[in-house]
Amino acid sequence: MKKIVALVLATLLVLSMFSVAAMAEDKPLIVIITPSHSNPYFKTVADAASAKATELGYDFLVIQHDDDVTKQSEAFDTAIARKAAAIICDNAGADATIEPVQRAKAAGIPTFLVDREINSTGDAVAQMVSNNYQGASLVAEYFVEQMGEAGNYVELTGKESDTNAGVRSKGFHDVIDQYTDMKMIEQQTANWDQTEAYSKMESIIQAQGAENIKGVICGNDTMAMGVIEACLKAGMKDVVVCGFDGSNDVRDSILRGEIKATGLQPIAYIAEQAVVQADEYIKNGKTDKEEKQLMDCVLITKDNAAKLDNFALAD
């Protein structure tokens, strides 16, 4: 009798496993891993990717790693445990992300990286990032023009562990350094952070004197927002501040005549395309795209800022 009960139970168990698998097969899961949504930029990544996933018939799960590599590693574990069909990831570190991506690959789960590169190829199926260098060049050209090709300026850079911080800074300097009358008097990191940018800029103004700073070029928009606040407080109405990202906050600042320009990263488009390519990979086992894909940025100034919304330009 006991044996029969055991057999029935075992059969039920096996059947239930099949049905779970069958359900999972009905709607495969795409796991979307991003930095904290406190920066609206990353919320856009998650929103655009999840909307496209739903449209293409997938379930999705959004996890925030808050730029913490341990949290990111746990997020990959979750994706592996849930037998995700694909992972879309805006990663927490160019080196620290290699291992989790390899772990997912070993478990048969393809990873599509968006927004930030990692320092390896052949592990992720795609690395789709903004052409940060091209975007930074665009912003720097406008910055130089607004500065009248001469004067003292300050640069605030992003988080050092993030490749984009270095790429953007190089993009800025490859343009600006060609003008011998442009003088960088301070270069500091504010780690992408608005509050840190505000306080750093405040001390720089104290140290250098408001009248000696003609412009500030920033590695992202949140830092630009901190900088413009500090500058306006110090009465620097004509200061030339430029950012990078294309956020709605900076759009509004540009329209108010405060910040002068930003480089729009087509991040909504990138996040959607990552899901499109993931879908293609899930269905065909391959995509016809190169692993590393650079998406060009667009310069946003007072001329086109009104058309910008949630990291996309209206036609």
Partner: peptide, 13 residues
């Protein structure tokens, strides 16, 4: 010339 043949954006740039 393709990005994949170079280490990163910076080298390609």
């Amino acid at each position: 010339l393709h990005l994949d043949d170079f280490a990163n954006q910076v080298e390609f740039a």
